[in-house]
Structures are given as structure tokens and as C-alpha cells.
């Protein structure tokens, strides 16, 4: 199994990109007792401008906390996709939300899935970020699905309906990517 992962979740403010990164980092560090670091970039606006979170997962000490050599880039919105589309390496898995993004040529391995539709079908239209996390989990196996489910349960503690919808959204991502 690959030991170290550098992952970027990108999109616009309000899409839950920080939450995706946070859940992944917490699942790996708190549940699986490995190392994780997450940093984020966003503007002064609350919603609607470019936002990303960088997550690095490793079995050992992580020095520089930002992604320098991405293994995976997730883009949920066109402005984020456009930033990365022509600068990625062939080894990078470029995972994008095809409901928002118009595909362009890229050196990266592109996988586009209708994440908004998938979230809506799971009964959680706002959980596009969690669908993406499910797809990422299935395609990379960088984390155990049960670890993410445990962190979702902790995060949405006391909000049973929201938790249920997010678990479904996560499973929808897992299943679609597993096909």
C-alpha cells in the first residue's frame, strides 16, 4: 500500500472543501493513528471564490504542510478545475464534478463523475463534498471507509438525519467508484 498521499480538494467557498479535508485527516490520524496535515487557502469572501484544502497523509513525520506534488486533485467547480487542468503531472488522479465542470485536455488521469446528481439521489444535495470523499476513498484506498464513517458519525453527532444523508452520500461515492 502507498505510504504517502498528497491530496487537494478544490472548488469554491461553501462547497465543504475544508470539511472533506478535515474528515480525511482526522480519519487517518485519530482513527488509524497515522500522520496527517491539512492546510487551506481561501479568500476574504465567505462564499463563491476559489478555495482549497491540502491534505498530506503519511506513516511518518510530515514537514512541509502544503501539497507540492499532488497524487490526487479533486475539483468541484470550474474555476478550480481551470487552475489545475494543464499543470498536473500524468501520475495525478484528477477527479472532477462533471455537473459543474466542462472537461478540457489535461496531462493528468481524469475521472469526471456527476457528483451533484449522485448527492441529490442519496438525499443529500449539499453533500457533494462527501460524495467526492467516497469516490476518492474507493479509487485510492488511502483510508479505510470505516474510518471516514466513524468521523462522519462524530462530526454529525446529535444530528441523526444529517448524518444519515451524509453516510448515504459517502456510500454513493464509494459504490460508483467501485464499479
Amino acid at each position: 500500500m502507498k505510504q504517502r498521499w498528497e491530496i487537494i480538494f478544490s472548488g469554491v467557498g461553501g462547497q465543504g472543501l475544508l470539511l472533506s479535508g478535515n474528515l480525511l485527516g482526522a480519519a487517518v490520524s485519530v482513527i488509524e493513528k497515522r500522520q496527517a496535515v491539512m492546510t487551506c487557502t481561501y479568500g476574504t469572501e465567505t462564499r463563491g471564490t476559489f478555495t482549497k484544502s491540502d491534505v498530506i497523509l503519511s506513516d511518518g513525520y510530515i514537514d512541509f504542510p502544503e501539497v507540492l506534488d499532488a497524487d490526487v486533485v479533486v475539483s468541484l467547480a470550474q474555476i478550480a478545475y481551470d487552475r489545475y487542468v494543464d499543470v498536473l503531472k500524468p501520475k495525478t488522479l484528477f477527479l472532477y464534478n462533471s455537473n459543474q465542470v466542462k472537461e478540457a485536455p489535461s496531462p493528468a488521469r481524469q475521472v469526471g463523475l456527476p457528483m451533484e446528481e449522485m448527492a441529490a439521489q442519496a438525499g443529500a444535495p449539499a453533500a457533494v463534498n462527501i460524495v467526492a470523499l467516497g469516490i476518492l476513498t474507493a479509487l485510492t484506498k488511502c483510508v479505510q471507509p470505516t474510518s471516514i464513517q466513524e468521523m462522519l458519525t462524530r462530526h454529525f453527532k446529535g444530528r441523526q438525519d444529517v448524518l444519515g444523508a451524509n453516510i448515504k452520500a459517502f456510500e454513493a461515492g464509494l459504490e460508483e467508484a467501485g464499479k
Partner: peptide
């Protein structure tokens, strides 16, 4: 800002 907003265990 990096350290204040960075998440780590």
C-alpha cells in the same frame, strides 16, 4: 496564519 489554521493531530 499557516500554523493557526493548519490541522494536525
Amino acid at each position: 496564519e499557516v500554523i493557526g489554521h493548519m490541522r494536525e493531530p
